[in-house]
Amino acid sequence: MDTRFLAIAELDDVPSVAVVVDVMRAFTVAAWAFARGAEKIVLAESLDEALALKARHPGWVALKDGPPAPGFDAVNSPGMLRSVDLGGRTVVQKTTAGTVGALAVKEASLVLCAGFVVAEATARLLRIRAADQVTFVVTGEDGRADEDLACAQYIARRATEVDTDADAFLRRAGGSRAAAELAQGVRQGVHPDDVALCLELDRFPFAMVATLEDQLMVLRPSAVPSPND
Rank of each mutant, 00 (worst) to 15 (best):
A183M: 12
D148Q: 04
T28M: 05
A179M: 02
T3M: 02
G87K: 14
M1R: 10
V134I: 15
A156E: 01
A173E: 03
I155P: 01
V137R: 03
D167G: 12
K40Q: 15
C113R: 05
E161I: 12
E39L: 14
L126E: 05
E10M: 07
Q215S: 15
T96P: 01
G59N: 12
L63Y: 04
G79M: 06
A69G: 09
P70R: 10
G143L: 10
A207I: 04
A156W: 00
N228C: 12
D85G: 12
L43S: 11
T160K: 11
P68H: 11
A166T: 05
S222C: 14
D146E: 15
W32H: 14
E120R: 08
E161M: 13
L51D: 03
D202S: 10
V100L: 12
D165P: 09
E107V: 01
L63A: 06
V17D: 00
K64T: 14
R158E: 01
K94A: 12
E147N: 06
Q188C: 10
M1F: 06
A30R: 06
V111M: 03
V20D: 05
R171T: 13
A179S: 12
L219H: 08
N76Y: 07
N76Q: 09
P78K: 07
L112N: 01
L126H: 05
H57Y: 13
V21Y: 01
V17A: 08
V118F: 01
L170D: 05
T3Y: 00
P58S: 11
P227M: 10
A180R: 15
A69N: 11
V23D: 04
R129Q: 14
V75T: 15
R220M: 08
A207Y: 00
C113F: 02
G174M: 07
A145K: 03
A210L: 09
V61N: 02
E49F: 00
L170V: 14
L6P: 01
V23Q: 06
R187E: 09
V105E: 00
R158I: 00
L81G: 05
V84L: 13
E49K: 08
G185D: 10
V195Y: 00
F169C: 05
E107Q: 14
D214H: 15
S46F: 03
R177L: 12
V61Y: 11
V19F: 07
L81C: 08
D194E: 07
V134E: 00
G87V: 10
V14A: 10
Q153V: 03
K64V: 11
V20S: 06
V75R: 09
V29P: 02
V19E: 05
F204L: 15
A31E: 02
A62S: 12
L47K: 13
V218I: 14
P225D: 07
A9R: 15
T28N: 08
V23F: 08
L103D: 07
A123Y: 00
N228E: 15
R127T: 12
R171I: 13
A18T: 03
D193V: 06
L182R: 02
G101E: 04
T122I: 04
D12K: 15
A178K: 00
I8L: 07
R172S: 09
R157Y: 01
P15M: 10
A150G: 01
G143S: 10
F169V: 02
C113V: 11
A178H: 09
A108F: 01
M1I: 06
A178S: 11
K94I: 15
A119S: 09
Q215K: 13
S109W: 08
F136D: 00
S77R: 06
L201K: 07
W60L: 08
A179L: 01
P67T: 05
R144M: 11
